[in-house]
Write a protein that binds this DNA or RNA. Structure first.
Lengths: 300, 300
DNA sequence: CACCCTCGATAAGCAGAGCTGATGCCGGCC
DNA sequence: GGCCGGCATCAGCTCTGCTTATCGAGGGTG
């Protein structure tokens, strides 16, 4: 007899569903996926029958409440599936390379640099949200992410795989202000004072404006120049040249010619950097992880 | 033309694979899954061909390195798939119930209790690792997990869905010692001093011994009685009666008749409780989340 | 040492899952 | 009101994925 368990919720169906939801069209989705419209229709019907509820309204094509919920689950699920696949495939063809550390640009705090061994490490600077994926797929053995968080909170990060995080450093957050700016003389700043200012938007190199907004309770910030690179030098130079303010950990914001770092005291947030790794690191990765983590005990 | 994308890595195959790996036998797995041995064999072959590497050694049946890696990914993936499904199905048949808060037994710190509204909340006490799943599947709107962690570290928890966590309380960790115990007079204890003691093993009600082991750097702890329930009163009574030591947050360990709570000073760990929720809580859930979180600092 | 017995791989066959193309039907739009 | 764009439905065809049957290789046993 054929297996009693139909076990629907096939990733095929999910992929079709998210595509349809994204494009708000069955036929468009069919074109993008290389199916016929008929197949797409059947996919959605199968999902809806399986879950026992309509997922999309037709005409216009919009997710229902249940459909929204499914989207929240489906997108990360598909991501993880791809990550898992990539990881295993990579491992299968593994040419035993050295230790790779993926890091966000501003995550290289001095204490982290001090812990790096003299040789044998490949450092790779990536955008902040690519790092978990890099660790998950085995492109990197360890990752360093940073960001702004309430003092005792973990960082939010996309979860693409079973990863472990461990705090390695916390620093005060500073606003980088050009020498000539009226606020340059202040010894401390509150975010509320800066709502009217213009901010550099550098999601990869610095702190994304969306984080600022969240920290400040939803008020919008006026973006000035946008910088898509990952070079902190460029970012500080832009800030010094008066293109806008930016938030940085103190160590990255001090010593910039033409600008001063003013500590941010309100809201109470810190710049956190966390080490990300997969399960149990082995060999050289475990050693480096140990050295990074043990500094944490000393920092206080 | 048939779809060019075979999109293997079917959950069916993954499920078969993890079953085979768990039982270390193709035929056993076939029996358990309701397939024939032949089908299982083909499943594994398909996976191996798809990933381009052997996943299992035969005779004896053991995961290869790549297979181990796949297992790390596959198990949580399947969990999440089921959770997603359960969540959407539940939502489809949602009879608009009240607000449910799932909590670990020792997560009900006084400040949490103070924040609960007077009415309209269903409280559900679950084992610690069932809570993320409960929130993920919508069985509960909010979750409270607790555990022992280094001062600034997040708790480790099974990730079954895109969940957000937010610290709500931190407390010192105490060892609950019977009055009659030689250590009862001490004002502080180090974990190293207690390696020879016998510990209650209460993974659901208290702190799992495995956490202790990890915190102490791998030394094993001698388990005494094991308690599988979730009632803290029972646990404290057992400790007072001399059945073994146990670790608790201070608020749960004080005021126990026949036992005293001695703070643990080494290693430096705290009892953390975190609020777990899915995406953006709505309505009553959002209000409660706000009240729980505001005690700690500022956020959204 | 020969035998057997278990367990996994392979071959062949068959039912149905799932795709295509054609057509039906409904709502928006000029 | 008729046209048109877009989703649902139907019939038919493939090819996937299961089954049964058989083979081959180890490992334990008399």
């Amino acid at each position: 007899m054929p297996a009693g368990h139909p076990v629907r919720m096939d990733p095929h169906l999910l992929r079709t569903y998210v595509t349809v939801a994204r494009l708000a069209s069955f036929s468009e989705a069919a074109r993008e996926l290389g199916y016929t419209q008929s197949a797409v229709s059947q996919h959605i019907a199968a999902l809806e029958q399986d879950l026992g509820a309509p997922l999309l309204t037709r005409r216009p094509v919009t997710p229902t409440a249940a459909g929204e919920r499914l989207l929240e689950h489906a997108a990360p699920l598909l991501l993880r599936l791809d990550a898992a696949r990539a990881d295993v495939v990579r491992m299968a063809a593994a040419p035993e390379r050295g230790l790779t550390l993926a890091t966000a640009p501003t995550a290289l705090a001095p204490c982290v640099l001090a812990a790096l061994p003299r040789a044998g490490v490949t450092l790779r600077v990536l955008a902040r949200d690519e790092i978990p994926a890099a660790v998950a797929t085995g492109t990197a053995d360890l990752g360093l992410v940073d960001g702004i968080a309430a003092p005792n909170d973990p960082l939010r990060m996309p979860d693409v795989a079973p990863l472990t995080t461990h705090g390695v450093a916390e620093e005060p957050v500073c606003v980088l202000v050009p020498d000539t700016h009226p606020l340059a003389g202040r010894s401390a700043l509150r975010l509320g004072d800066l709502a009217a200012a213009r901010w550099l938007d550098a999601p990869d190199a610095g702190v994304p404006l969306s984080r600022l907004r969240a920290a400040n309770g939803g008020g919008a910030f006026r973006p000035a120049l946008r910088y898509d690179g990952t070079d902190v030098r460029v970012l500080t130079a832009l800030a010094a040249a008066g293109h806008g303010l930016t938030l940085l950990p103190r160590s990255a914001a001090t010593g910039v010619p033409g600008a001063v770092a003013v500590p941010l005291t309100e809201p109470r947030v810190v710049h956190r950097t966390e080490l990300v790794y997969r399960g149990a690191p082995r060999g050289a990765a475990a050693r480096l992880a140990g050295r990074l983590v043990e500094r944490e005990g000393q920092r206080e």
